[in-house]
Design a protein around this nucleic acid. Structure first.
Lengths: 218, 218
DNA sequence: CAATATAATGACTATCAGTCACTTTGTGAA
DNA sequence: TTCACAAAGTGACTGATAGTCATTATATTG
């Protein structure tokens, strides 16, 4: 009988509901202020039950990061279906990343949280952490793919190593996007206010700069 | 009598000692695991006394960020004294940043912490937070200065806005440097391991890429 | 329907940030 | 030097909250 299977699916569904609730609580109270009691109330479960579905609070945050990285990957995958030069695809992915952070800042916060986890044991044993890792890998592969396309169509200098370049683009964009995140979320910074910069145009400018650097020289 | 002044200095000294202790505790136990009791023990003060010098635990972390940003600024200021083309100076600052994070990862962690603070009230009232802000501004001015030098000596394309470009360089480098930090600190990432990349060379490559992008075209 | 397994519960414990009534130390006037 | 007062220091206490576990409720199955 498919009881076994049904149970597994129901458990997965419940996990998703708990993550939904966590998202809702964070929307109301902020990321760091979320408590397990809040999530319990929001889900209408008891606190103890939460721990049947998630090892600890970290695991819930990780669940958010996993969901976020999945959503981001979906956007990137879509970009790859567009028929344009590789360099354009990279540009488009940058735009998507920025939009993503603006529309769903909670997930970006969860990424930051994920990266702050130092507990190796936890990172290697938890299946959600594993999926985060896989998602990061998938994300990297999309960027690499776009670069390879660009190298073939001549829009990107093929003397670079695509995989390494992908890491560079990913990491540096992350830095830029984080600035966007900081501006959006509470963290006020007079420096950023002063410099008359809407992030949008700065990001465009940055991608242009990268493009210049990557472009094939004659 | 200079009693007033002496007291002020002693208070400042004590604050520094507490930050020293916090650093030591973090070295032993990790950033997030530091407790006020730990710091109290390390300083051989009572917990209550800590609160006479720091409003709360956040303020101690902030103290670390302030110290860190001061040290980083010192490095950047030094670079500016070198007589080389602007583009070279930017390159050198990148190297310094990377070294800094490798040698003093605790401060970089404190930067991340600082950025995660959302409490506007606290950020605007706390004098240490103010100094962090000032340090960030100073840091930005060093990068801007190097860019301006580069624009004058022709090593950097002067069609960019120096201030805006400085933010872009700062933010993107931050992303790269963070990868270095992740590799060093506990956070294991199979993705980063797989791609045969020592950060050193990737960072060099990135600065080269930026350089290409910023370089004056004929 | 009874026996057993699985899921859910919430009172409880441990930890830790932050407080405050009390004690100790320092200062300056008599 | 001594006393009164102020400033600095203390640690037991409180409140919040992550995580546990003995107990209860529900589902499954022979």
């Amino acid at each position: 009988m498919g009881t076994e299977e049904r149970k597994r699916r129901e458990k997965e569904k419940r996990r998703e509901l708990i993550i939904d609730a966590a998202e809702e609580v964070i929307r109301k109270k902020g990321f760091e202020s979320m408590t397990m009691d809040d999530v319990a109330e929001e889900t209408e479960l008891s606190k103890g039950t939460l721990y049947l579905y998630f090892k600890n609070k970290s695991a819930i945050y990780l669940g958010l990061a996993e969901r976020g990285s999945r959503l981001l990957n979906r956007r990137f995958a879509k970009v790859l279906t567009i028929d344009k030069p590789g360099l354009q695809l990279i540009r488009q992915m940058g735009e998507e990343y920025l939009d993503f952070v603006r529309e769903q800042p909670i997930y970006f916060h969860a990424f930051i949280y994920y990266e702050s986890i130092q507990d190796l044991e936890f990172l290697q044993s938890d299946p959600i952490a594993k999926r985060c890792e896989e998602n990061a890998r998938e994300n990297h592969s999309y960027i690499t793919r776009a670069l390879q396309i660009g190298m073939q169509d001549g829009s990107i200098d093929d003397s670079y190593d695509a995989k390494q370049l992908a890491v560079m683009i990913w990491a540096s964009s992350r830095g830029l996007v984080q600035v966007a995140y900081l501006k959006n979320s509470g963290h006020h910074s007079a420096l950023l206010d002063d410099i008359e910069l809407d992030i949008e145009s700065m990001f465009k400018s940055f991608i242009h700069l990268l493009g210049e650097g990557m472009a094939k020289k004659e």
